[in-house]
Design a protein around this nucleic acid. Structure first.
Length: 424
RNA sequence: GGAGACGUCGCAUAGUCAGGUCUAGUGCGCAUCCCUGCUAAGGAUGUGAGGGUGUAAGCCCUCCGUGGGUUCAAAUCCCACCGUCUCCGCCA
């Protein structure tokens, strides 16, 4: 959630942020009004409560003859206090409801607008000229089937649409990718983590995923648990309600987990193959860092993502996501999109968000300052590899006969294999 | 699934049966200072979180796993829930 004090001091920035996101700036003024109301009612309650406590204490030592009179007054006061408390509570609830509706304030420099208003920061690597090479481009599913690596038909039979099996070399390829990502993260100082994929409502809400896109999330009614769409959720919850010591630097984690997405709003989109699926695997970087160092950490996560993309030799571009396409928790987001030869377009492979103190406030993650005070930390996350990367790797490294070249950096993770051969 | 024990301000604990200076005590740890001096010890003071108010010093409120309830008054009594541990059963 946003910082109420900052909102009070500088409502214009918050209003501008709402406008950039395409959200309603009036929410800011509703918040200010609700905050003022809450503080007034709280002060009133606290004053009456102090009075009541004092009177109540005097009963124990009151002389027997005046006891009844004091008791009578105390009873009346108790009624009054109960009423004042109810009013203060109600005002606090109203404020809270508004507070949880408000998305993070976007960072300076984020392009305003919606999904299509991103800014391309750079393009790296050139797409192959398949025509010149004499290669008739196959899409990832055709390639995957030829390699006996992907089986979507049986995925549908067993689990429904948007499910699949990775078979044989396909399974090995995913493990290779994810292991390489874990190694890379570990080398960069991230602690490897294998996280729960079912989380409590408070954790899911704290990360900001239960807002506008709540229908994207699987919910297990019987147990009131949510299936995570990314290990970010579990990693953000990991230090919830804790006060961290970040004086030795940020806490960095690399989460390995299955991820689940309902894809409720994407009927008919990316229905072929494994581009958009209900379940996949991902290695996710997650950092807890002092707010002042958050922007630098964001660059660091982005750099690691680009290193991974370079390691698997994919042409890609980096985009600065527009305000309206940011998640509610993010103040800024960079996506890396790989070139997809079969569709002649870019496909998102990584996404790194700076959530500033937004998630930390909701989840109660703070740090101890040098002065001994507490303050909310900043949280950031970024993708290091996912099942979807297989799509881009197969397509970009395909050869004329339907076999696929293995990028050099990946070869050690595939037993030294240099080519994935077509299977009979 | 059954039976039981437990959940207190970093850690360890007192307090709960008998509701009222508990305005949560003590030890350890930690911080500052003092004394002294030689691989250290002793003493003093301070030391949870969140919030309201105030220029400030300060004053005040909330929190004893969570949420309700009883009462003038709840760490303490009642109810529900959550979590941890032990034993039994069942399943992998």
């Amino acid at each position: 959630m946003i910082d109420l004090k900052a909102l009070r001091d500088d409502p214009d920035t918050a209003r501008a942020s709402q406008v950039a996101r395409g959200a309603d700036p009036a929410l800011v003024d509703e918040l200010l009004a609700a905050d003022e109301r809450r503080r007034a009612l709280l002060s009133s309650f606290e004053q009456q409560r102090a009075e009541q406590k004092e009177l109540s204490r005097s009963i124990g030592k009151a002389a027997p003859e005046e006891r009844q009179a004091v008791l009578g007054r105390a009873r009346a006061l108790a009624e009054q206090v109960k009423d004042a408390e109810a009013q203060a509570d109600e005002a606090a609830r109203e404020l809270d409801t508004l507070l949880w509706q408000m998305a993070n304030v976007v960072a300076d420099g984020v392009p305003p607008g919606g999904e299509d208003d991103f800014v391309v920061l750079r393009e790296v690597g050139a797409p192959r000229d398949f025509e010149a090479e004499g290669v008739a481009v196959r899409d990832h599913l055709e390639l995957g089937e030829g390699l006996r690596a992907i089986d979507t038909e049986r995925g549908a039979k067993v689990s429904g649409s948007r499910f699949f099996f990775l078979t044989g070399v396909g399974a090995q390829l995913e493990l290779a990718l994810l292991n390489m990502a874990m190694d890379k993260a570990t080398a960069a100082g991230f602690s490897p983590m294998i996280t729960p994929t079912l989380v409590r409502p408070a954790i899911m809400a704290g990360t900001g995923f239960l807002g506008a896109h709540a229908d994207e999330i699987y919910h297990l009614e019987t147990d009131d648990l949510y299936l995570v769409g990314t290990s970010e959720v579990a990693l953000a919850g990991y230090h919830s309600d804790e006060i961290l010591d970040l004086s030795d630097g940020p806490r960095r984690y690399a989460g390995w987990s299955a991820c689940y997405r309902r894809e409720a709003g994407s009927h008919g989109k990316d229905v072929r193959g494994i581009i958009r699926v209900h379940q996949f695997h991902k290695v996710e970087m997650f950092t807890y860092v002092s707010e002042a160092d958050a922007a630098a950490e964001h660059e660091r996560l982005l750099a690691l993502e680009e290193e991974m993309l370079a390691a698997v030799e994919l042409p890609y571009r980096v985009i600065d996501t527009a305000a309206g396409d940011l998640g509610s928790s993010a103040a800024r987001k960079f996506d890396c999109e790989a070139w997809l030869p079969s569709q002649q377009r870019f496909l998102e492979l990584t996404s790194t968000s700076n959530c500033t103190t937004f998630q930390a406030r909701r989840l109660g993650v703070r740090e101890r300052t040098a002065e001994g005070e507490t303050r909310p930390v900043a949280t950031l996350n970024g993708t290091l590899a996912t099942t979807r990367w297989i799509v881009a790797i197969l397509e970009n490294h395909q050869q004329a006969d339907g076999s696929v070249r293995v990028p050099q950096a990946l070869q050690p993770y595939l037993g030294g294999r240099t080519v994935l051969e077509v299977q009979a």
